[in-house]
């Protein structure tokens, strides 16, 4: 306890950085949601709740919500299943495991723009040859294409968390179960799954909330196209804020979106925490 104050100082750089890059701009931009600012002029007028009312009349936002949900749910499910599977595989010791780990983690170091660029190239030159049509170029497959890019570039962090979670489960449990005659699937079902609870809480919540906010990959891979088929909420907000000269409206949508994300994040964490078992 004596050291608690000492530890606090380690947080200071992060807090300062967070305050100046996130907290301060956020608070100082809040009022924009209640104005008709076009994003460039020096003056703006307060329009009270007009922006929020417009949100409920805007048919385009429905499409953006659909696309966002489709991507977020698909990505979260695939990411967690795949990363848990890979974490179990990589937890074993076999030749080349180090190289494999590196292969899965390295894409995390690349930016979203670079990932989208590389995959855009693969899609145009290779996938379109194999499948007869590129994934990103048609509305029915564009979300699948973006999910593949997102998985490639982001799966490493969940593998890491699941691997840490797996290594925390005492080997005795598995040995005891094996002696009792439990097969591999039963051991996974009754030992691994429940005891990985904390990892699920972290991974699923983080993946889902970050997937709902997804912007970089989609923006650089398709820009929301073709014909709005990959226009997610984040791109919808960006377009209003910067391209359509409706900064007030964009900010209002962003505000509502943020509140929904916060409620969702807290709700999910609560739900999963309540399901966790004590070791």
């Amino acid at each position: 306890m004596k050291n608690a104050k000492g530890y606090f100082w380690f947080l200071v750089p992060s807090i300062v950085l967070f305050a100046f890059t996130v907290a301060v701009p956020f608070v100082s931009g809040l009022n924009i949601a209640f104005t008709d600012w076009d994003g460039i002029s020096k003056e703006y007028h307060y329009v009270f709740l007009d922006n929020f009312i417009r949100m409920f009349q805007d048919s385009n936002i429905v499409q953006a919500i659909k696309v966002t949900l489709l991507f977020a749910i698909g990505y979260t499910a695939l990411n967690n299943i795949l990363s848990l599977f890979l974490a179990i595989l990589l937890g074993d010791k076999f030749r080349g495991v180090g190289i494999l780990k590196t292969i899965f983690f390295v894409p995390m170091a690349l930016s979203a723009v670079l990932a989208a660029f590389v995959w855009g190239f693969i899609d145009r030159k290779i996938l379109s040859g194999i499948l007869g049509k590129s994934l990103l170029g048609s509305p029915s497959t564009v979300i699948i294409g973006i999910i593949i890019i997102a998985l490639w570039s982001g799966i490493g962090s969940n593998i890491m968390i699941y691997m840490a979670g797996l290594s925390n489960i005492p080997q005795d449990y598995y040995e005891a179960a094996q002696i009792d005659g439990a097969n591999a699937w039963k051991r996974f079902q009754y030992i691994t799954l429940p005891l990985l609870g904390p990892s699920f809480t972290t991974c699923i919540t983080l993946t889902l909330t970050s997937a709902l906010r997804e912007f970089g990959i989609t923006m650089s891979a398709t820009g929301g196209g073709p014909a709005r088929s990959s226009e997610m909420i984040s791109i919808f907000i960006y377009n209003n804020l910067f391209s359509y000269q409706k900064a007030g409206y964009g900010q209002a949508v962003a505000l509502v979106f943020m509140i929904i994300l916060m409620v969702l994040g807290i709700g999910l964490t609560r739900f999963f925490r309540s399901k966790e078992v004590e070791m």
Binding site: G120, D123, R124, S128, K133, S134, L135, L136, G137, S138, G225, P226
Partner: peptide, 10 residues
């Protein structure tokens, strides 16, 4: 064909 899977440089 596949006009949206083809970029300007292609």
């Amino acid at each position: 064909g596949d006009q949206f899977g083809t970029d300007w440089n292609t």
